[in-house]
């Protein structure tokens, strides 16, 4: 089991993404990095930012940032820790999550709306990581 959020978790996520042929197919023309911002609630007392550089169906780099503003990215997907837990457990659909205000997305909407399949594959991948929630 890997603790979420952590450096170990994001590294496993990177490995799983890079092994996922369905994601690679869906995101084969995607270019853009993400910050996944986990806002504190419940057991999490401070914000945590996870960075992923996604390029042509692969993850080129992934790390937990020392602080949320250590790095900027083309997109920021953010929500409270309890909602991340539900997302990774597939209790929340990633797109419905945004439409119901459980998550927010900042970045170029026109571009990302063409990659909804990739977004779903990405979350499906995250849910395959044996995750421990503190």
């Amino acid at each position: 089991m890997v603790k979420f959020p952590s450096q170990e978790w994001i590294e496993q996520f990177k490995d799983k993404v890079n092994q996922n042929a369905a994601y690679e197919d869906a995101a084969k023309s995607w270019e853009g990095d993400f910050i996944f911002l986990v806002e504190p609630d419940g057991a999490l007392t401070a914000p945590v930012a996870l960075y992923m550089d996604l390029f042509h169906g692969k993850c080129r780099d992934a790390k937990m940032l020392a602080t949320p503003d250590e790095k900027s990215a083309a997109y920021t997907y953010q929500g409270p820790y309890s909602n991340w837990k539900k997302l990774i457990n597939k209790e929340i659909d990633p797109i419905q999550g945004m439409m119901t205000g459980k998550f927010k997305l900042k970045g170029n909407m026109m571009k990302i709306m063409r990659y909804t399949r990739a977004a779903k594959e990405l979350i499906n991948t995250a849910s395959t990581i044996p995750t421990e929630f503190p």
Binding site: A22, D25, A26, K28, D93, I95, M113, R114, Y115, T116, R117, A119, K120, E121, N124
Partner: peptide, 17 residues
């Protein structure tokens, strides 16, 4: 078809193939 938002809630996620 691949870039359509219509597939977002489709029961199966179709590959390009």
């Amino acid at each position: 078809a691949d870039s359509s938002t219509c597939v977002v809630s489709n029961p199966r996620i179709p590959s390009s193939q």
